[in-house]
Every structure is written in structure tokens, then in C-alpha cells.
Design a protein around this nucleic acid. Structure first.
Lengths: 245, 245
DNA sequence: CCAAAAGTGTTAACATTACACCCATGG
DNA sequence: CCATGGGTGTAATGTTAACACTTTTGG
């Protein structure tokens, strides 16, 4: 595996979302370039991304990045948009970083954007020698490259998907409570729902399976746990004409 | 403009859909390679696509292709998926075609897929020296490169969009009847709707503007014409939680 | 016994579905 | 005067939205 060749003009960028029952977070990595004297030439943040190997598909490349960061397979992953503007890597810091990394800052690099939803907060703390951490989406400042654009497009695509398809579960543990699920939708869609109406609505979804199991160790009435069945979903889903106002 | 440089590893493929009040059609071009003796080495069909210029964004490249084919600007256009499998151009005919075209068949080429919806049937008959024509989607046989995959993914993305957002109008003239609109949905979603219920439903959409104008020259009661107002749509649209069954 | 979140039901307004007949035009 | 597609209403059923109180647990 050590002699695989990296393609030098096709990359994937992964916008990895995580949920901590309070906020929507995104995984970012430090990008610090040292000057010759050891001081920081600059230091900022980027999303996670990498060039693809020549023998690898783009989905395999995205899966590889996710595995390297989390040690997990079968994470929810979706290709949402591709970025190839001529000037997307042309900011001063970006050029310096690419040169330092032995890459050609004048090469047109196309990047395929994926977003991933994580059921857990476990990630490595270091990745390719760079520090990795979760950051609440609303606290993200200026990122390197065109990653602010990629992040905002990922958010649009993810919210859109969340509205139309059952993917909220992917941000929760396998077993979750209805209140946790409601919170996912409320926080990501920046709204609130009536508890009784929300429960009535999800109660109609056959693929949301109630378990004979409750929360433990909470200082209030323990909630029933539920799980999502993709199998039931695939069997019962029907498309609905919904191009309303 | 004549000295613009083409990028040799980033291309866009356009899946151009048209509607003729009977069928959903897609634009295909002949791909005929002549042998030395003038006979056909092979002859098949592909979708429309092209490499991008170095100074051009991918949307600009797709717009350019659409303009070259139709002479129209502002066509409905959407980036839906990117294709970069290592073997996507490796079939025998594909290699021959690329070689003949002075391109490197071993170069990894990434192609960004767009689909377009056309309100008219007008297209050029020739494009880059190749014959162009409409073909009903269900009659499309084996296409060159990975274009069957690109077409089927375009169909999935287009149907999905059609269900959730008002884009059916884009396949009709600016002024259209409700029966034409119903037919668009019926044919593309392969279903039927009750006429009264369909009209009740679209009657609630404020962005569908009834005109003081009727069909002319039809051998039956002439239908009222309508138009779509994107402006009203943008103002009145609201997102709805709809991840039901 | 207190704090915290879980869980539950009713009503009114609106949306969906199923279903059949007359109307205006061109030929 | 006929063939063609345009246009319309009602009743039953299902969905949404608004709204408040009791229950179970840990501390």
C-alpha cells in the first residue's frame, strides 16, 4: 500500500458534522506554517480533506479520511457539491502552504465536497501531524482555502436533506430518546417544535422503532429509547409531491 | 478568446432534458470514429460535455455548452454529481476516441455532471462537427464513456428536485396550461393525478400566476395560460419538515 | 420534597382523496 | 353536430397546530 500514487489535481474535502446535544459542530484542523526561525508564519484552520489515490474512487477517498479521523466505518456520507473555481487556492496563505507542502499553487485543483454525520464525538486528536478538534458551526471564523464556501454549501445541502429525508438519527447514538431527536431538528433548523405534535408526527414513522429500554441514571423520569431502522424505511418510503409554497 | 487554454483533466457533462408534451427527452450527440479507409471504426452516442477553460468556472463551462447547443442563456441548470472513477473512460471505444482526439486515455479525468431543463425544443443540429439530436429517455441504449451512469444519476437528481421544488415549469414554454404542467409531472414521475385535485393543489401556489390569455387555434375549449413567478416563489417559500414514511 | 425532563389528548383549521358532468372550440 | 380537452364541487378522511397538566426519577 505504501507505493500508491496520489493524484495531484483531484481532492475531496469532508465537512464532518457532529452533534453534542447542545450544538452542531464541525471538525476542523489547525494549519500552522512555521517560518525559518521557528515562529509561526501564520496559523489558521481548514476543513479535513486530501488528494485521492490514483487507484481509488472519490467515495473511497472520503471514507479513508473519515476512517483516519474516527476509526469508524459506515459513517453517513454524502457527496454534495464540487468546487473548482480558478482562484479557489490563490490567497496568499494558501499559496505559501501549498508550496511548503511541495504542491504547485498554480495547478487547477478540483475538490469534491462531502458531508458526513457522526453519531459519536470520538475523533483522533491528531491527523497528518495537525491538531484536530470540534468547533461549533456558528463559531467558525475565517478558514483556509475556499473552505468557508464549502462549509456553507454543506450546511445548505445538509439542512435540505434533513428536511426531506430521515437522517437526523445519524447525529445521535444508535439508541436515542425522542427529545434528543427533536433537539437535533430544532438546533439544525433553528426553530422549535411542540413536543406533543413532534411525537405525534414521528409516531407515524414506522421506521422509528421503540425499544423496551429506558435511559438510566438521569435525574428525572427516564425516557424510552428508540432506534432507526433503515430497512423499514426503505420498505415504507413513498415519494410525495411537495413543491408547495 | 482564441488563445484560451483548455484544462485537460476537468470536464463538465451536461444532461440536457427537454419535454415535447409526450415524452421526456435527452440531448445526445453522435460519436463516430472513422478508420483509415474511411469506414466507420465505431459509431455510438454520448451526452454533451467538454473540458473547461483554465480561466472559467465549471458553471461557466456548462453555460457555454448550453449556449453553443441552444443559443439560449439563463437555462435552468443544476450541478448534481461528480464522476471520477479510475476506470470511467477505459472502455476500448473510449480509449480509441480519446487517442484520436489527441487526448491521453490514461489521464484521470474528473467530470462534473450538470442537468439542464429546456423550455424549448430548439437546438443546433451540429455541435463540434457532431450530429446532435433529442432522444426519448426511455429509448436511450448504450452510451459512450460512463454516460449511462451519468444519465441515470441525473434522472434521480432531477426527479428528486421535481418532487420537492417547483421546477416543472422549466420544461414548458413561458406561458403554459395546467394540463401541460400536470403532464410534465405525470410523465417524469411515471404516475397519474386526478385533474381536479391537481388543480386544487397548484391553485394554492401563489407563484403560479393565471394570465388573462387563452390558448388559440385548438380544436376544443381553449385553456387558460399560466406563468411561473420565481420572485413570488422566493418570497413565499417556506421549508417544511417532511421526512415522512 | 424539589427540580428536571417525560409523557399524554382534544379541538379547529386545513389538506387530501375519490369521484362525474357540462362547456367551448375547430373541423 | 361531433370530437376533444377544459373546467368545476362535495363529502369523508387524514394532518397540522395550538394548547397544560401529571409522572417518574435522582439528589
Amino acid at each position: 500500500m505504501s507505493n500508491r500514487k496520489l493524484n495531484n489535481y483531484i481532492s475531496v474535502d469532508c465537512v464532518i458534522f457532529g452533534f453534542d446535544s447542545e450544538k452542531l459542530n464541525v471538525l476542523v484542523v489547525d494549519r500552522t506554517l512555521k517560518a525559518d526561525d521557528g515562529s509561526d508564519e501564520f496559523s489558521d484552520l481548514t476543513l479535513t480533506g486530501n488528494h485521492i489515490y490514483e487507484d481509488e474512487t472519490i467515495v473511497e477517498a472520503a471514507d479513508r479520511i473519515l476512517y483516519d479521523l474516527t476509526g469508524l466505518r459506515n459513517i453517513y456520507l454524502e457527496q454534495f457539491k464540487t468546487f473548482a473555481a480558478p482562484d479557489r487556492l490563490k490567497k496568499e496563505n494558501d499559496r505559501k502552504w501549498l508550496l511548503h507542502d511541495n504542491r504547485d499553487p498554480d495547478k487547477r485543483i478540483v475538490s469534491i465536497g462531502f458531508f458526513a454525520l457522526l453519531a459519536t464525538q470520538k475523533v483522533t486528536l491528531e491527523w497528518k501531524g495537525r491538531n484536530v478538534r470540534w468547533m461549533p458551526v456558528e463559531e467558525v471564523g475565517e478558514l483556509g482555502f475556499d473552505h468557508n464556501l464549502i462549509l456553507s454549501e454543506a450546511l445548505v445541502a445538509m439542512r435540505n436533506k434533513l428536511i426531506h429525508e430521515p437522517i437526523g438519527f445519524e447525529l445521535l447514538p444508535d439508541k436515542f430518546t425522542l427529545s434528543q431527536l427533536q433537539k437535533v431538528y430544532e438546533i439544525i433548523l433553528d426553530t422549535t417544535f411542540d413536543k406533543r405534535n413532534f411525537r405525534k408526527k414521528v409516531g407515524r414513522m414506522k421506521y422509528l422503532i421503540p425499544l423496551d429500554e429506558k435511559q438510566k441514571g438521569v435525574a428525572h423520569k427516564p425516557a424510552r429509547l428508540y432506534m432507526f431502522s433503515r430497512e423499514v424505511y426503505e420498505k415504507t418510503r413513498k415519494e410525495i409531491l411537495n413543491f408547495l409554497v
